[in-house]
Amino acid sequence: MGFLFVAPAFVGFLVFYLYPTLRAVEISLTDWNLLRAPKFIGLANYARLLGDATFWHSAWVTLTYVLYNIPIQTVLGLLLAVLSDRLARSVALRAVIIAPYLISNVVAALIWMLMLDPILGLTNAFLDTIGIARQSFLASPDQAMISVAAISTWRHTGLTALLFYAGLQAIPRHLYEAAKLEGASEWVMFRRITLPLLRPVLAFVLVTSLIGSFQVFDVIAVATAGGPADSTRVILWYIYENAFQFHKMGYASALSVVLFVVLILITLLQMRLLKADQSDLD
């Protein structure tokens, strides 16, 4: 009976996750250009990866993206959640906060790409009128990654805030009332009550957003295509290039498998550090 309830999810997992993952491992051991039969070459793809400067470059670029994206998104999300919980419990406000997340990544990237255009963009026209120098944003290798991270952060902060907000509802109100009676400030209550009791939610948010962040793709595919001058050539874009432009399916799969393993390790580490399976509430 229980199995019947999980069956839809379980079948989905088997067909769309487990099978493709195993298949990717299999393909990663071959030289396959899609158009001809794959040739088994053992671990050659993995060996090549170690000496591939572009791979290391893309790994580094991805890491910088994660470092721009995750801290700001998490802190902002937490801030918005706590503010809307402590100050104004308005549904309308929460709807506004989540709104960017309801726009698809591709549309968000397209709109921002046009707004951030160095010559014709709205943002630069605005900067001009208030006397600030024009910025290159997505067109310059020095600003492109920050701009991409800002677009993603803009889109995802609302979701993060909503998750935190839901987590906050599980914290008993009487704790805050008692603290207030003791004369605790908002900051002390945040440090001593909110943050510790929010830990399981924090763990969930960090684990999922970090995985998502390492897999940034859509915004880059639309807004920069890995450029300018490879400055946003993240690991997923490099995988895509290998698979669908260079037609090196084997190598692309090897890259995917490596990313998969790295993400599992990071996730395990996070779960341990954040003690994600325990709550201080009980």
Binding site: M113, L116, P118, I119, F137, L138, S140, A223
Partner: peptide, 13 residues
């Protein structure tokens, strides 16, 4: 327009 300021829009735009 220097390369740094040529966005994704084509010259025709």
């Amino acid at each position: 327009i220097s390369q740094e300021n040529i966005g994704s829009l084509n010259a025709s735009a």
